[in-house]
Computed example of a mutant assay.
Amino acid sequence: MAKRVFLLEDDEGIRQVIELILNLENYEVTSFENVEKFMAANTNDVPDLFILDVMLPDGNGIEVCKELNALQQNVPILMMSAHFTSADVALSCSDASFIPKPFDLNTLIDTVKRLIGDN
């Protein structure tokens, strides 16, 4: 069975590229364009990895990260941002990994594999 990734990214182009790349790597990707749709997802449906953009039109990926950590699902979280740094993210969501935008596709794939344990 394919490993599952939930992707929260408001930029349609970036969202489509990440979905395509991860699908080619045999991951099943469910994507969301905003926090409202992400939070409305079935909470019993837990993926193997969350990928969260920081700056979103209706919220903040760091706050989503905090909420996910509060649920104690022990699912890895990968944060990404063009405007924040890993240090910024670590202050508020210390358990999350981070990649800056723009990112190298190989770096994204390698990070996803490492976090899911798919090496």
Rank of each mutant, 00 (worst) to 15 (best):
I116L: 04
V89T: 03
T111V: 01
L71A: 15
V64M: 13
K37D: 12
N42D: 15
M80H: 09
N119G: 00
V5H: 10
A2Q: 08
G59D: 09
P57Q: 11
L7S: 05
K113S: 05
D110E: 13
F38L: 13
D88Q: 09
S31W: 00
K37L: 11
A82E: 02
A87H: 14
D110L: 00
R15W: 00
F6E: 05
F32S: 10
S81C: 07
F98H: 09
K113V: 01
N42G: 10
T30P: 02
Q73M: 12
V46Y: 05
N34L: 12
R15H: 03
A70C: 03
D48Q: 10
V29L: 03
F103C: 06
V112F: 00
A70E: 10
S31Q: 02
T107E: 06
A40T: 01
N42Y: 08
D53F: 04
Q73A: 13
R15G: 14
L22A: 10
N106M: 06
A96Y: 03
E67P: 03
L8K: 05
N60G: 07
Y27Q: 02
T43R: 14
V5P: 09
L52T: 02
Q72R: 15
D10R: 07
R114W: 00
G13I: 02
E36Y: 11
K3C: 08
E33I: 04
Q72H: 13
L49P: 11
D118T: 01
T85N: 14
F32T: 05
N44D: 15
N69P: 02
V89C: 11
I109S: 15
D11V: 06
R15C: 11
L22C: 05
E9Y: 05
A87R: 14
M80D: 01
A70W: 00
L24P: 02
P100E: 11
V89E: 13
I99R: 11
V54D: 05
V17G: 14
T30Q: 08
V35G: 11
M55W: 03
L56C: 08
I109K: 14
V5S: 12
V17T: 13
L68W: 01
P76Y: 08
F50S: 11
L105Q: 13
E12Q: 14
N106C: 06
V17K: 11
L49I: 01
I99D: 06
E63P: 04
N74E: 12
L56M: 09
G117A: 07
L24W: 12
I109Q: 12
E19H: 14
N34K: 12
M79E: 03
I62G: 10
G61P: 06
D118M: 00
S86W: 04
A41K: 15
E25T: 01
P100A: 15
C65N: 05
M39K: 13
C65A: 15
N119Y: 00
N74Q: 14
N74V: 03
F38A: 13
I18H: 00
